[in-house]
Design a protein around this nucleic acid. Sequence first.
DNA 1: GGAACATCACCGTGTC
DNA 2: GACACGGTGATGTTCC
Lengths: 99, 99, 99, 99
Amino acid sequence: MATAGTSETAVNGSRDEEKATVSFGRDQLKAFIERIERLEEEKKALGDDIRDVYAEAKGTGFDVKALRAIVRMRKQDLNERKEQEALIETYMHALGMLN
Amino acid sequence: MATAGTSETAVNGSRDEEKATVSFGRDQLKAFIERIERLEEEKKALGDDIRDVYAEAKGTGFDVKALRAIVRMRKQDLNERKEQEALIETYMHALGMLN
Amino acid sequence: MATAGTSETAVNGSRDEEKATVSFGRDQLKAFIERIERLEEEKKALGDDIRDVYAEAKGTGFDVKALRAIVRMRKQDLNERKEQEALIETYMHALGMLN
Amino acid sequence: MATAGTSETAVNGSRDEEKATVSFGRDQLKAFIERIERLEEEKKALGDDIRDVYAEAKGTGFDVKALRAIVRMRKQDLNERKEQEALIETYMHALGMLN
DNA sequence: GGAACATCACCGTGTC
DNA sequence: GACACGGTGATGTTCC
């Protein structure tokens, strides 16, 4: 199949058909771009909301960095977390940072 | 102000008040965490939607990498315009034309 | 003192003096910019070197994420680290993530 | 491949070989950490140098914010040029003019 | 599974 | 000295 949005000359087909195809490709492209941009705006808005919540929590005395750590850990699988911590301990031990 | 979530003994106030404060801190913490997690879920869902749109566009023959480039550039253009404006402000300030 | 690089007309002084001042300002600006850019290049190069070392370590079987954690911890003051961890534990406890 | 730093028992090989391997792992780990820390020190020193240059420029009357803006823009110009070239490649690819 | 890319969090700096 | 911003580094994701 031809790549959408390209302007390679069709071997067969009338000029009108080609024009219609190209136009359609352009409209389609525009539609996709707009859908994406719309979604990204909403996504950004949510990101801003999250920032605001952290800010609000900070305003009531919570430590943002620690909050983020909590959220991160809750997202993480328990086993993963333990494995990672064990590995770090191993390295620390090798470096004499423990004991 | 004291850091929320710590349990240092208040100089004044009954034990009950303290308990209530700690409990309230806990509830507040839960509330913040849950709000954040809720928002992050929605954000993730939007990310997935965006993915889907790209996938759909790809399915109709568009080149995803090029699409991403277009979206990126349109975003950069906006940013740059804002940056330019901010820069003009800065220069005007440096030249003593503001303030 | 006048702001360097600005072109406000000096109240006293010949046009030649002014021209010389402006030129000097320009040269000086150029010099500063170049010094900064030179230093930033070197800084970037070191950043790249660090990346390379991590990559090499990874190539010999080390876990990069854990290595980074180690480096971070060695940089951090011991007390700081403990405080942060204690705070996180407090939050985790409040959320029933411990016990 | 086994993760470096773990101490899983080798299926073959004497205990001595294993010990040697572990020790080597430790030495290797130390070496990597130290290389990284050394590089980070140098990097930090350069960061300090840059700060000093800005401070010096400020001392001779330049507006630091404006200076930073200039440096930033010059960097962006470079990046953009590279981005443009990459973009052209992408488009050519999308149009089937490459490959 | 590795490389490139986009996003995100952290930190240093400047400001008020 | 707290807040805001910009720069930088790290993480997670996508593509090959």
